[in-house]
Design a protein around this nucleic acid. Structure first.
Lengths: 265, 265
DNA sequence: TACAATACTTTAGGGTGTAAGGAGTCGGCA
DNA sequence: TGCCGACTCCTTACACCCTAAAGTATTGTA
């Protein structure tokens, strides 16, 4: 199930997202706050990084901070908003400077790579739906970075937008395979190879006419397309190759668009 | 949270996926089965289509069939396997014939469009992680269709594979915005316009220096890139445009790859 | 010292998936 | 005809989940 973003109390959410991260110590009666929004978000991110989104619960976050689940509700309206914060803070980590001087293509590649790396470090990002944007500083930061780097192509901004979204899709899509393959391996305790081996054995047993029914897929398998050429995790390597290949295809497409746009003149 | 696929009892799963859909009526003692795997899967798909994956529970499926949740466990090992079945059966719906005769590009576009449409009809597909493939007939069917249609580019199959995955990513990524935008609108009861209007008003109020901090994004907004030119749902239209633009870029990239591959000779 | 405000915990209620075991139903055999 | 065994299906129960509401502890101020 996907965690939807941006559904809670809008004002409260936005204030948390855009407000100052270090809150001035309150003066007045009452016990001093033992926690802080930032500490909670940080703990939540740690949990999600280490054990996946499935292990993220108000209880687990509270426990990590030595409190009960309910203690968090003093700082954060609910789990939805906490996820929003995690998401936006993490996006804010994306480095913002890229070597535009050595050509837009190199810069775009470096940026895509940074995005890939960010998602791989925080795989749960993929489980936060980008449908209703959080509209936090992190999200704006990413958009700004992507747009400004790709504006170096010289294409009009309205077209750059499509390049940005396509690039984003390719990164997200391909990193998903890598990230979730890792996570699945951890959760099931089964390595990719073992899992794949067991399954394909079953496949051969239960579906003897596989080759006849799916000739092209089978041909690809025969031609070594599905073999593991090294000893690093197969699906992860596969995902990385898919990322690089997809990116190159896309950038070729951008180059063609540039030529088309400036050619007729 | 993402539903992981392919984690249950491997053999049992595969048998359900590949086995005959219409099971011969059992002869022997005991009451006749009142349900069937297919009926359960169908009910589950209906629920997910109508109310989203969040509303899919063993209870809700049972209720729709006039049974309790536990009654389903006679037919299906668990929820994981049920989702696997839903996923694979749905993928099997993808039409398999495309007009390859009128050029690979038109065929590829038609295929991508069919995929888009399939995902839009069953938005919850996006919430089933493709990390550990289900390896069911539906999944093979999709792979086979994609590969065979794109093989018409003349590129070697090992390269076609990357095109396939990039195309898949672009479809999945862009349809996600459209589908989840719909779902979010239904769930929150807030139209896109209302939601966006409320949020951007808040944004202007809480972040007065937005333009200075994110100049490129703001410039895009000013240039009308974020305006709704028609009365159909904005984000959905946006997503469709993103899909088409991304696809064209990718196909341009493929064309470039074809030229590169055959040029030097 | 008394009070008010805040932080935090406890309790409780309605969700979820599913393990375990009991109830009901039917076919076939004695 | 009577009954057993096999099978389906349901009830109960447990361990989680989020969070509303109410109670307790802690702190600064008047």
């Amino acid at each position: 199930m996907v965690v939807f973003a941006g559904q809670g109390d809008a004002r409260r959410s936005m204030e948390l997202l855009w407000g100052p991260r270090v809150v001035a110590p309150r003066t007045g009666p009452g016990p001093k706050p033992g926690l802080s929004v930032e500490a909670i978000v940080e703990a939540a991110i740690d949990i999600a990084d280490a054990d996946g989104m499935a292990s993220l619960s108000m209880r687990s976050v509270g426990e990590r901070l030595g409190r009960t689940a309910m203690a968090l509700y003093t700082y954060v309206p609910g789990k939805t908003e906490l996820v929003d914060l995690m998401y936006d803070r993490t996006l804010g980590e994306l480095p913002s400077s890229y070597p535009v001087s050595s050509g837009w293509r190199a810069a775009a590649f470096a940026l895509a790579d940074a995005l890939w790396e960010l998602h791989l470090r925080h795989p749960w990002l993929l489980q936060v739906s980008p449908a209703r944007p959080v509209l936090g500083p992190g999200e704006f930061h990413v958009q700004e970075t992507l747009l400004s780097v790709l504006a170096a192509t010289g294409l009009p901004l309205t077209r750059v937008r499509w390049v940005v979204s396509a690039l984003f899709n390719i990164v997200r899509g391909s990193v998903q395979a890598a990230a979730e393959s890792r996570q699945a391996a951890r959760e099931t305790g089964l390595s990719e190879e073992d899992w794949w081996y067991a399954r394909s054995a079953l496949l051969g047993e239960l579906v003897p006419d596989l080759t006849a029914r799916f000739p092209t897929v089978s041909r690809l398998g025969d031609e070594g397309g599905y073999e593991a050429p090294s000893d690093e995790p197969y699906l992860e390597r596969e995902a990385r190759l898919s990322f690089e290949a997809g990116l190159e295809l896309l950038l070729d497409g951008v180059e063609a668009a540039i030529v088309k746009a400036s050619g007729p003149r």
